[in-house]
Design a protein around this nucleic acid. Sequence first.
DNA 1: TTTTTTTAGTTGCAAATGCAACTAAAAAAG
DNA 2: CTTTTTTAGTTGCATTTGCAACTAAAAAAA
Lengths: 148, 148
Amino acid sequence: MSKEASLKFHMNLGMLIRSAHNSMTERFVENVFDSGLNISLDQWMVLGPIWQLGSPSQKDLGEICLRDKPSITRIIDSLEKTSLVVRVSDQIDHRIKRVILTNSGKQLFYDVLPIMEKTREEVRGDIPEEEIEIFKNVLSKIIKNLNS
Amino acid sequence: MSKEASLKFHMNLGMLIRSAHNSMTERFVENVFDSGLNISLDQWMVLGPIWQLGSPSQKDLGEICLRDKPSITRIIDSLEKTSLVVRVSDQIDHRIKRVILTNSGKQLFYDVLPIMEKTREEVRGDIPEEEIEIFKNVLSKIIKNLNS
DNA sequence: TTTTTTTAGTTGCAAATGCAACTAAAAAAG
DNA sequence: CTTTTTTAGTTGCATTTGCAACTAAAAAAA
């Protein structure tokens, strides 16, 4: 059975979503590798929000990235081990650890940004902007449907 | 930060897709559990195509389910261990193993079908049919963009 | 105040996944 | 034919994940 045929056959949402996600991850990793940089997709997905927010708590990151607590802990662990971020205890609430980019973290962020953009373009191809909008919208609705 | 706010904030496709996939999986598992049945989403995603195709090879299943070979091997292992399927060597090409549902496999398929339907309805909620169509279409296009 | 509950984050363990190396059989090349 | 290449499926290993249990601190209740 050809790849074309298989795509048409009995395609349920779950399979499609899983496969799209896998392909996107794979492509990002390839593009990063080709650029001689060293960061995983998980790390990148957390690095961006840290850059945007300045010094988010790990809880903030979990909510923004839609990941559970242990995942965030481990991703921050890996970012800290490679000196891309540091953890700083919140002055007021000592339960909270704020995550801050180091200079090399910022540098890597800037280096990876164009790779992310390239990947995004490859993912989108010539899919019309309005279809992408509907697509993102449906994803958000699905997430909302299942969390209420 | 509230869940609402987080959804609006810098939501890239990767995060959304991952989260939607996780939520769907979780809901399916809950619904199956509530029904007192015992099957994982991975197993179900393979069981369906086996039912439809009769006696597919593992390669067929991999292409239809968009999973790699080791995944299929292991899922079939688990289905065989619980006596839901059997592996039969192809009479002509001895490399090929055909996968066949047992009676209890068929029974489980029929039992899970309404649960899958319920899950599908919960996932879709009141998202209009044409948006779902565009959604599936965009997913297929993304997969195609990245595999060519 | 003291006690209880909630919240933020971490850790350990079992299960899932991805990758590369492997076996066995069929097809293609010489 | 014999050798080489390709194909179907399996296995081992390192990494990731998901879950539940845990610590420590803050907030709420008593």
